[in-house]
Design a protein around this nucleic acid. Sequence first.
DNA 1: GCCAACGTTGGC
DNA 2: GCCAACGTTGGC
Length: 155
Amino acid sequence: MNSDARHYWLMKSEPDAFSIDELKRRKQEAWDGVRNYQARNFMRDGMRPGDRIFFYHSNCALPGIVGIAEVATDAYPDPSQFDPHSPYFDPGSTREQPRWMLVEVKFVKKFKRTISLDELKRHNALTGMPLLRKGNRLSVMPVDAAEWSYILQLE
DNA sequence: GCCAACGTTGGC
DNA sequence: GCCAACGTTGGC
């Protein structure tokens, strides 16, 4: 992967758990709780500070892209995996060999409207997006530069 | 709340 | 290494 180029991503969050409004209030936040290896690998191996992220609301009345965030740090071990009181605790993970990583993300902007999943599906230019693949459950995924700019002009 | 799709786990 | 059972995701 070309480390000089800025890359684009999409990250899902359930707004009941963590919404774009909450990121706006907090300015920057650790994206903890990812417990899927493919999603972890994207954060650990693909993301670099300065990369841009579509913030996606899932499992809600109007699922869709609601704004933009930016990768603020390189990946580091997700502290919640070591915390027995956390719902994300992983007894199989050790500090010597942590299993789960996270990046911190910072708020960039909230869209004036939600670019809904339903709307995204209606654009032929976007049919290749992993987000739109049937049965896709990834919570962190790459976005092509062309798809990124295409979606931006939908707002 | 339902359920299809998918990842993970564990018995064998 | 197969695969059934199970748990989770997330649209609807």
